[in-house]
Design a protein around this nucleic acid. Structure first.
Lengths: 137, 137
DNA sequence: ACTCGTAATGAAAAAGATTCTCATCTCAAT
DNA sequence: ATTGAGATGAGAATCTTTTTCATTACGAGT
């Protein structure tokens, strides 16, 4: 379970780390900022310092447990890695985020990289648009 | 020339705006942060306040003159729009940035958005990889 | 060219996000 | 249980960006 994942990451199994990982697994929000994590933990009665939240999230990222996204808004959001890769589409009006995976795009990205002598390691694709409810505005 | 572009954006033609636009056109760096712009202007002997640089860049973005990128690093970078849209491929070893445009990917993005009830307004695609000289490492 | 109202600027303060410092505490190997 | 390395918490510090507000500059109309 959690403890093993943390251990595998080469980190000591501490209460803050366990609680943060639990929260990421159980939260209804898929994309949370450090501040979000801090507050959600408070709601659950866990008083874990904000600095620790930042530290742990950064460590989880380095360990490949979570991914950090630099969406717009001046702050990073984190997402628990669940194996399956996907990209994001964000509503510029309400901020709603949906996920998608498109084989054609994935394939072409790899080709584009190769054509330019690059070996693709990773990529970040975010589509911005107006969702159903905000197409007018 | 510049003045007209600024006027077309619905902005008054002021010295700071002209100087910043000039700098973006002549700079060798394609991607500059607000801080970069501020310092490059200082180097040229133009003392324009940092707050003004932020304001003007934001206005230029709203006017479609420049694009704001949220690369990693905790700060935004701006790039002068030269008409032709393109995405970026970044070498994770040396930081080299190349630009590309792929019609297939562009097309699929629009389709993916539509399939999900979104109307695409913009997108950000960054491929990370190892360039020619760093494929080993 | 001159006047005048509006919009723009600069400096400093404020706000927001993230990192750092350091004294204290906790995990886990012995 | 002991102990030392690593982790934590609180607050300070740093960095980026925005806001405030008094002053200044643009440009429309004369």
């Amino acid at each position: 379970m959690d403890n093993q994942e943390i251990r595998n990451a080469g980190l000591k199994v501490t209460l803050p780390r366990v609680k943060i990982l639990e929260l990421l697994e159980n939260s209804t929000q898929r994309h949370v900022s450090a501040e979000d994590v801090y507050k959600l933990l408070l709601d659950r009665g866990e008083e874990i310092g904000l600095a620790t939240v930042y530290r742990v999230l950064t460590q989880f990222e380095a360990a490949g447990l979570v991914t950090r996204h630099n969406f717009e808004g001046g702050h990073a959001v984190f997402e628990l890695d669940r194996g399956e890769h996907h990209d994001h589409i964000v509503c510029v009006v309400c901020g709603k985020v949906e996920e998608f995976m498109d084989a054609t795009i994935e394939q072409r990205q790899r080709e584009v990289a190769n054509e330019r002598g690059f070996e693709m390691a990773d990529h970040s694709l975010i589509i911005y648009g107006r969702c159903n409810e905000h197409k007018d505005n």
